[in-house]
Amino acid sequence: MEDKLLNESYEQSFTKHIIGAGRWTLLLSVPLCFLPAIYLWIRYGALPPLGSILTGWFLIASIYGSWYIVEPISYFPILGLSGTYMSFLSGNIANMRVPCAAVAQEVLKVEPGSKKAELVATIGIAGSIITNLIVVTLAAVAGNELFKYFPPIVVKALDFVLPAIFGALFVMFSIKYPKYGVFAIGIGMFLLGVVKVLPTWAIIPICIFTTIGYAVTSFKRKNKADQSREV
């Protein structure tokens, strides 16, 4: 009963507002993204022929078109509702939003998938967006100046930021679920090393949803075994 009340108040005070704000921010950003291109048009009359814009659109959609749909669906089980709205506005999902959400949940020891976890992830992702905006603004204003202070060895080391983070996060979750971890790396290696022909936009959802499938089946089997033992 209490749970039901809690669910309803959560629904009223959080979920509804998240959907409302998420929708208008994402959809409003679309026209705003065209402002610089429109500026070139108005100020300099630099409007590419419609044919070129459509060709560009066709070319780019043939590369990324599947991603538009596959990514939000694939990352949803990780990011949740508010995390998805935030991550698909601010981008850098696998390399920044997901790690920040995961580490924030780990630091505060909340059960992944719970309401508390969603709140913690939301705040953690917001923190990462602020860092992102500060550094990107700094780069835009003074990037060339600051770049001089980066020794070549540091620039080289920065190539390895992502593999190091991905390895570390994989272990963080594998410690809790070693069996699923082995399965996940197995399926990834199989698709990349043996099958080889699949496009990336297909490999990511296959990796995510087969691992989910495997985890859920073995979770249910274990639950059943536990129940029959109790009886």
Binding site: V98, A117, V216
Partner: peptide, 13 residues
Amino acid sequence: VLSSAAMLGVFGY
């Protein structure tokens, strides 16, 4: 289980 498995799936890849 769902969200942890999804996380492992993407980092496995």
